[in-house]
Structure formats: structure tokens, C-alpha cells
Design a protein around this nucleic acid. Sequence first.
DNA 1: GTTTGTGAAGGCATTCACAGCT
DNA 2: AGCTGTGAATGCCTTCACAAAC
Lengths: 230, 230
Amino acid sequence: MSAKSKNLILKSGNSHKISEATVSRLPAYFRALTQLAEATQVRVSSEELAALTGVSSAMLRKDLSHLGSYGTRGVGYEVEFLRYQISREMGLNNDWSVVIVGVGNLGRALAHYGGFGSRGFRVVALVDADQTLIGTNVKCGSEGKTIELVVHALSDLESVVKKSGARLGVVATPAEGAQAVSDRLVKAGIRSILNFAPVHLVVPNGVDVRKVDLASELQILAFHEQRKAV
Amino acid sequence: MSAKSKNLILKSGNSHKISEATVSRLPAYFRALTQLAEATQVRVSSEELAALTGVSSAMLRKDLSHLGSYGTRGVGYEVEFLRYQISREMGLNNDWSVVIVGVGNLGRALAHYGGFGSRGFRVVALVDADQTLIGTNVKCGSEGKTIELVVHALSDLESVVKKSGARLGVVATPAEGAQAVSDRLVKAGIRSILNFAPVHLVVPNGVDVRKVDLASELQILAFHEQRKAV
DNA sequence: GTTTGTGAAGGCATTCACAGCT
DNA sequence: AGCTGTGAATGCCTTCACAAAC
């Protein structure tokens, strides 16, 4: 996808550990590079890309150095080439199918969320326990392709996961049901869960959980805000 | 609020730094303690509370030791007392007023979100740029008290912030408008911002921003998921 | 001259392991 | 005997600073 015939080091055994801290920043780099590419900018320095993503230039360079030596000294990085390398490293070329459990306000917001579809994530199934929701249609995706998905019954969770081929599960249920939902997602073969319920999910080894806790974020802000008052 | 006449060390100059890592875990401890209190459990060990929140018992004890010496050796912690100390430390006794900018799916989901109201956060104002939304009513809060809020025009942002007395701002706009919204929130006096837009916000010193990036979370999961495939 | 890539240094967070209370 | 609180040790992440490459 890019530039001069740069030495295509597709080192297949590319599994020397990338630290978790670095992984957590790659999406931000990827997004900034996408913006730059859309603005048809060809090259970018570590300084500039760092400013766009809110990290120091030294940290950015160290992060990127873990992926490979994709820059040119004295020049910078080529936007398209670096963007492609990051997308490859993060598996954004694959299409990732997502099942959302819990179609309340949050679940629905996630289903509509444009940021997913545009980055290789596709919501392929919706599940809820509420009898009045089951069987209804919900719009998924935003810009361009919006499809409608039927809300499936919680009791069909396992078969829905298997039929849809989802590999990523989103838990957007109330706290009470979250652990049970998680257990069943795991039983159905899901090994990566994004949890919005305000509880700590216990899962077997080999299963990843990331937690997003909206109220906690506000609490952390409030803590600092409180300290600011003179 | 609690138990025996424990020596009430209300050390007013209680500003010896608590590390950011510890602060980020306090909300989880608080939530677990709330659950235990509702289940009328009186005491809890570091081991048990740690299991509920997904940290090691040693880390939990070190975290709590930064707040003070609120446990009893050989016994454990008293649930209500510890809960109160954490809530005080985090400023959850105050009422925190929140303004949400961007009343799309996500903004609306946040407005409805029950977890806010129940922890001292109150959504007091909604702002959006969309002419078709301005002037309409949106339900806020969930269990029990749901109120309706009028959506205000983006051009009224500053006056809305000042009238409502909001100290916390939530940016739930598309990426394009987020920086401008942030600038205006800061100008209106807001010094703590929760940002859901997928951009890095640049703010003056003294202003805190926390970022929640839904697509990034999925990308991070996908990264690990990719590595699992045998 | 400019900017990357990277050892080395420094700082921060977590775990260990046990002294100190109850 | 049991559990907390905490110095010491470990490990991880970030920053520094400069050699290497253009």
C-alpha cells in the first residue's frame, strides 16, 4: 500500500512481546495516522504524531520501535506505510464480529456507534433478557451501511454466538446479570469480552476482559476536581 | 455512620499524595463495599475485598494504607466505616453537577445511565448542535427520579454551564467538534472533562481530561485475540 | 542539519514477606 | 492464631540523551 519498495520485512515470527502499555496506545496512533492520510499528508515526524496523540515523542518512537524500524532518520515516518503496519500488527485487516448482550440505552448506543464499523468491527448479533425487546429490530451501524438486527432471547445466547461466528462479546447488561452472561459467553467460545457492567467479571485463564466503567471515570475526575478547590 | 468510637483522625491536611493508580481503583473498592453493605455484611478481609475487585490482597492493603489505617489487624475492615472513608476521600458526599455536550445515542445513553445518579452525579444540562434536537426534552436518570431536561443550543454553552453550576463536562460529540467544545467548556470554567470523542483534547494546565474510547477498547481486545489463534 | 532508534537512567507501581497488633 | 500495614525487592514503563542514519 505504500511508497518506495521499502524492504518488506514481513517477519512472520513477529511475536516478540509488545508491552501492554504500548498496545493500549496503538489505536490512538492508528487513528491519528488515518486522519493525516485523509488530509493527504505524506510524512509525519515523531514530534508531530506525538502531539496529535498526547504522548511524548520519545515514547512514541519507543512504541513504534517495538513494531519494527519503519521510520527514516532525518526524515520521519511515511503516513500510509506506518498506518498499514500498525493495522496489520493490530489485526484490523481481519473483520471482527461482535455480539452485544444487553440492548438498553448503552447497548443500543454501541450498536449505532459509527466508530466500530469503520475500523473492522461489525455488530452481528444482539441479545437481551427483556421479553418486550426480544424480536424487535434495532438499527446497527451509522454512516452509510445501517442494517437492522433482531434482538435474540438471552436463552438463545449460545446458539446465537455460534451461528453468528462472533469472537468478541460486549456485556452491556445491569450489574446483576453480568457474571452469568459472561459465563455463558465463555461457554459459547468467546475469549475476549468488553464489559460495561459495574462489576469485576471472573473468567477462566485465556479469556481477556476489558472493563469500561462510566461512573468510575466521573468519580476519578471528581476526586481530582475536589483537590483543586483552593 | 459507623461502629465503635474509632479514633476519628480527621486529619485536615490530608493531602499527602495518593498515586494515580490507587485513585483509579478506589471506585471499584467503593462499589464492592456498597454491595457488601447492602447485603448487611459487617466486616471484610483484604483477601475477600480484593477478590471482589480483581486485585491482589497486597495491593488492596497498600492502596487502603494510603488513605489511613482503617483496618484492624487480625480482624479485617469494617464495611460501613471503610466505605465512608473512601467516599469522603473521593468527594462523593458532595453533589457533582454534570453537563453533557452531544445528545446523540451515546449522550442520551449517558443521560439515562443509572450509575451516575446513584453516586452523587447529577446531569443538570444537555447541549447539542443539532437544530432538530434543540428545544426537545430528554429523560435523565433512571431508577426512581427521572427528570426531563431541555436540549440547549451549542451557542448557549457558556451561559448554560454558568447557570447550571456544572463542574464536570462530558464531551459526547463527533470527533470533529470535540476540540472546539472542549475549548468552550474550559472558557466557561469547567476544569474536568470526560471525553468520549476519538480525539486527543488539548487543554490548559489545571484542566483534567479523561478519555473513554470505545473503538480503541475493542481494538485492544482484537489485538490479543489475534495472538491467541493457534 | 534533522530525526529516528535505543541503551542507560530514573521513576513508579506491584509483589514479597514479615513485623506488629488484636 | 489471624490479618493488617509496610519496608524492601522486583519489575515495568517512561524519560533522557546521544549515536546512527539520512
